[in-house]
Design a protein around this nucleic acid. Sequence first.
DNA 1: TTGAAAGCGCTAACAT
DNA 2: ATGTTAGCGCTTTCAA
Lengths: 341, 341
Amino acid sequence: MEDQKHISSPTLDDVARLAGVASSTVSRVLNNKGQIGEDTAQRVRDAVEKLNYKPHAAARGLASGKVFSLGLIALEVSSTFFGQILEGVESVTRNQGYDLLIHATRGEVAKEAGYQRPLGPHNTDGLLIHTDALSSAELQYLSSINFPMVLLHQSAPESLPIPNVTFENKNSAFNLVNHLIDVHGYRRIAFIRGRQEQEHSTYREMGYKQSLTLHGIPIQDELIGEGGFAANETEKQVMRWLESGIEIDAIFAFDDDTAMSAIYTLSQAGLRVPEDIAVVGFDDAYPRYYLGPAITTVQAPIRDVGAEAAKQLLKIINQQDVPPLTLLPTELKIRRSCGCQ
Amino acid sequence: MEDQKHISSPTLDDVARLAGVASSTVSRVLNNKGQIGEDTAQRVRDAVEKLNYKPHAAARGLASGKVFSLGLIALEVSSTFFGQILEGVESVTRNQGYDLLIHATRGEVAKEAGYQRPLGPHNTDGLLIHTDALSSAELQYLSSINFPMVLLHQSAPESLPIPNVTFENKNSAFNLVNHLIDVHGYRRIAFIRGRQEQEHSTYREMGYKQSLTLHGIPIQDELIGEGGFAANETEKQVMRWLESGIEIDAIFAFDDDTAMSAIYTLSQAGLRVPEDIAVVGFDDAYPRYYLGPAITTVQAPIRDVGAEAAKQLLKIINQQDVPPLTLLPTELKIRRSCGCQ
DNA sequence: TTGAAAGCGCTAACAT
DNA sequence: ATGTTAGCGCTTTCAA
């Protein structure tokens, strides 16, 4: 019976017939395998062009054992952050002739029985896994069958041998806080952290503490606040500090979103940034039309993390070695909110 | 030879053997086809569970002629706008057991020969095409082979029978400008348009003009400016108006990004919004920590457009009818930047 | 209700 | 350098 859905596409055999060769020859030409006569190759290419032929992905996948597609799994896919990663990943997958499959887990983690693995060995050649998108049990299973994977912004649980690509968090934070102390002479520096599970926040906090310690400034728990859970948690934290009357020279927010929230709260309370309190962030994510003071921050190569992770996954698929941990470099962006300029 | 890449997954035959039935029976159970004995079905399900079996997508695709995946093509994938659409699309594809393939064209449109169609009949069952991602020649070709497609925020070129899902632009803009005139008594209302190719902008401009005309206000070309090309074009346009000394009560920017740029420029020039000039936008996209006046705008169901388009594509794939044009409703968000409150 | 067998479009031995 | 052939793991007739 004819395919009812749409007019059927040409197959390898159609191309072979038109070029007057065997279908295996066409396959060789298309995949650059073995030695092919120049004239034959040309005839094949002409036939391919003429028929507008595209190899059927499923058939190719079935025969070769490779489906030429990568999967990207994340908790959620609508943030700018994810968009940039996606952009980086997509640029290399497409460039290498791979398809890209996306899945958002939305927190329904693979713990329970009956979990339907949406992306895995059955439909991809390897997986790119963004922060906490998969349970460690699931990672363990996939790792046990030796399935190619790369983790983005997350280190492998239980010392599984899964590479991790992220950017330099601790050192960048260290340098940023050094700037606050060395250049501006601030000593009472508060830190607003994100969600505990986010390694980002943890490493940035380590850099912060390291800098204080280096300068002989005691680490005070009252100066470390939470900002990552509820939408307005940062505002509440800043208000708490303000009302407590505790002395603060500067606030280091673990990301720019939080920094902007802090600036917003401060300005609502009638305080000026950076004149009264300096605020710095991380990510370099604030928008062009931002009405507040230009934010001193760390420019993170978000897009590049996606691209690099995809490259490494492709290497793993091709049996090449990759480093267990890749830390992409960042750049300090000194602007106005720290008190400079 | 054994698969070197990773330990091979269980197949239908493995399940059949364990359950003591034929593989075709397992297939029937998995796809709910035909009549199956309850006991047999149960044994099969147990075996599937026990082996952690997942059907191989490529094999299934090859045999059935359907690959159970949808493609989503866009010019670029890193904007918040796209992220929300993606979120909507992904929620329905996954829910319906379909995979989702993503591709960003980055403007390299399929005009020239040698164009490699990255997503199409060879690897998907249907395509979701975001604004201008595909050339009209490409659309024409795919349409000619009857390939299932849905357009997002774009009407089909050359009256091809491809459905279009978007939201109500013209009427929403009409209502928004009516508010400016009826409630605030503004009569000298400027409009900043986006790129000409964007239908969004065009329809919003139509709503704007319709409202002026209804109120007997002449449409003045000097009050219609460009904002959509270069990054700072809006700023330049607003400055031009300011320097020309032309009288303006309010500015309707075709989207919130542009509105924020306008507010930024106005405040740089020492003007207050809305006291000196009111500004309204479209999309409801401004961030929580925005420091300017809360923007009066139109809340657009961006995510829902993705979800609705995906649902319609699935219907088309299943031979059901869908309307040629779907306009999702919006909601007026009256806030401070128009002068209210 | 179930099994046997053909075949989807391709790749990869194995021939020649 | 090129052709022949045997599957890859499923779905789907066709028989029983």
